[in-house]
Write a protein that binds this DNA or RNA. Structure first.
Lengths: 172, 172
DNA sequence: GAATCTATACTCGGATAAGTATTGTCCGAGTCGCTGAGG
DNA sequence: CCTCAGCGACTCGGACAATACTTATCCGAGTATAGATTC
């Protein structure tokens, strides 16, 4: 029951990328600098987000990362699953049929109640995460966050984003 | 987002101990045998449950483990927290104030919205686990589980439980 | 002067070590029950 | 025949390695840009 440290970085980066203009991109090195992280390691997580179709990456001198779709269509659950993996945290090893109590395969057609309870709890967890969109995060930050901090973040984004000529499938 | 393997073993052991009579005990070796686990390693988890006041252990030849309180007063959340630790899975490292965007300490009095959202989701997770009592697990197993499997489990418990002379603080 | 070719610098991507947490195992401290002797 | 002391065996508990995973890093593949060259 411990989330990796990369989840926090991934969400922050995604939220930052949600503030870039149109189809502009932002290099991974700039994102790493913004949060004081190791650039080489952050790329690993950004890579996972790219593989999950949350971000898209453009190579080349003017390249970088940007959201693959609108911030309203990205939830925290998407990001968490992309980093931590899609399989549930609790996986039933069926240890009840590993000891001498084991009877027959036909006796274990039903999943054990423990597994059902754990999976139900995890569904509640994921449902709560699915309700929060990336646009909610940035909106809440813009509305209730500290003005100076917000201005500084915007300035940082403005300074490091790189406009692109051809528009991708970003527009909604 | 991955629960340790010991959680499953701990819940199964607790459910098994919920079926022993009155204040009888069951050795850890018997529990390990019931699920085909390493006895030495299972003791580690049983030890955590004992430290969390969920089980109580009695040394000596007729010793073993038993529930520290009634099965109706033990939830899955208790067991999970005892094994995995009480701190939340997502801990905010405040990376937003680690880069050059950092302004001043007064700008970060509010917890960031990301942390709030993650903790809210985890509260939902824990609430779902807190609703399931250990007595529910055993009742559901007795009612809907396979008859043969249930009978075999009861026989195994009956064979390995060791009655105690003096009653402890088990009665409610 | 314009187009093209080449070299360059910057980007991401995957393969490669170090650190840490989990998993697994072993041996020692403590306690109750059994056996034998003594009253 | 009953009581008590000693011995033994069984229990849990904590200290000690092995493994897997996360974290961190480096170097290579690929691409758009800038400049130089040629027509």
């Amino acid at each position: 029951m411990k989330l990796g440290d990369g989840v926090e970085a991934a969400i922050h980066c995604a939220a930052t990328l949600a503030s870039v203009d149109g189809n502009s991109t932002m290099p991974g090195a700039a994102l790493a600098e913004a949060f004081g992280l190791s650039p080489s390691y952050l790329l690993k997580h950004l890579n996972q987000l790219t593989a999950a179709r949350i971000l898209e990456s453009l190579p080349g001198p003017a390249g970088g990362y940007r959201l693959a779709r609108a911030a309203e269509q990205i939830t925290l659950l998407d990001v968490v699953l992309a980093i931590e993996g899609r399989e549930p945290a609790f996986r039933c090893g069926e240890i009840r049929q590993r000891g001498p109590v084991k009877i027959d395969a036909s006796a274990y057609v039903k999943p054990c109640g423990i597994n059902a309870a754990m999976l139900k709890a995890e569904r509640a967890y994921r449902a709560a995460l699915a309700e929060v969109k990336l646009s909610d995060i940035v909106a809440e930050y813009a509305a209730e966050g500290d003005r100076r901090s917000y201005a500084a973040s915007c300035a940082f984004v403005e300074r490091h984003q790189r406009p692109q000529k051809s528009a991708s499938s970003k527009q909604t």
